[in-house]
Deep mutational scan, measured.
Amino acid sequence: NQASVVANQLIPISTALTLVMMRSEVVTPVGIPAEDIPRLVSMTVNRAVPLGTTLMPDMVKGYA
């Protein structure tokens, strides 16, 4: 089972991601792979991401 990136807090729309905002967790459905966390830092989300939500590729500008 692959770990995915999960929001560690509410991430408001257009917020630049930082390490403290994300954690890795094995979830269903599978989202962005946890090993991509370093790549996600400073990318922005294009929607509000509630606490505990799995980050999907279409939620992060420039990721997909």
Rank of each mutant, 00 (worst) to 15 (best):
V41W: 02
G52I: 03
G62M: 08
L10Y: 15
Q9I: 10
Y63E: 03
L17F: 03
R23I: 06
L19G: 08
G62W: 06
K61Y: 12
A48R: 13
T54H: 02
G31I: 01
T53W: 11
S42I: 04
G31N: 02
N1K: 15
R39Y: 11
A16Y: 09
D58C: 07
V49G: 02
L55F: 09
L19H: 10
P57I: 06
L10V: 11
A34E: 09
V30Y: 13
T15K: 06
V20L: 10
R23G: 08
S4T: 04
T15W: 05
L17N: 00
S42E: 08
L40D: 00
V6T: 06
L51G: 14
E25H: 09
P50N: 09
T15E: 08
D36E: 14
A48L: 13
V45G: 02
P38R: 09
L19E: 11
T53D: 09
S42Q: 10
D58T: 10
G52D: 09
V20P: 13
T15I: 08
R39K: 12
V20R: 14
P33N: 08
D36M: 14
T15L: 05
R47P: 03
S14V: 05
L19Y: 12
V5E: 01
Y63W: 13
L19C: 06
R39L: 13
E25R: 12
Y63F: 14
I13S: 12
I32F: 02
P29M: 04
V49N: 02
T28G: 06
T28N: 15
V20S: 09
P33V: 06
P12D: 09
A3L: 11
L17W: 03
T28M: 08
D58R: 09
M21Q: 04
I13Y: 10
V45R: 00
M43V: 04
T53K: 08
K61F: 11
S14T: 11
E25Q: 15
L10D: 15
T18D: 06
I11G: 01
D58Q: 11
V20W: 12
K61R: 15
V5R: 03
M56G: 05
I13M: 14
L55H: 02
V45N: 02
D58K: 07
M22F: 05
I37C: 05
S4A: 02
G31A: 02
M43A: 07
N8E: 07
L51M: 15
M59Q: 05
P29G: 03
T28Q: 12
M56Q: 14
A34G: 14
I37D: 02
E35S: 14
N1C: 06
E25Y: 07
R39F: 10
R47G: 05
D36W: 10
T15G: 05
V5M: 02
M22C: 03
A64I: 15
P38Y: 08
N8Y: 04
V6A: 02
I37S: 04
A48S: 14
T53V: 13
S24K: 14
T15P: 00
L17G: 00
P50C: 06
G52P: 02
P50K: 09
G62K: 06
P33R: 09
P38Q: 11
V27Q: 04
S4N: 02
L51E: 15
V60A: 02
T54Q: 03
N46W: 08
R39I: 11
E35D: 13
V30D: 07
P29E: 06
P38M: 13
I13D: 14
T54P: 08
A3P: 09
Q2V: 13
S42A: 12
I32P: 00
P12M: 07
V6C: 04
E35N: 11
A16Q: 11
P12H: 08
T44S: 08
S42G: 15
R47I: 12
A3K: 11
T53H: 12
E35Y: 09
K61P: 13
I37H: 02
T53M: 12
M59I: 05
A16N: 10
A7N: 01
A34D: 07
M43R: 12
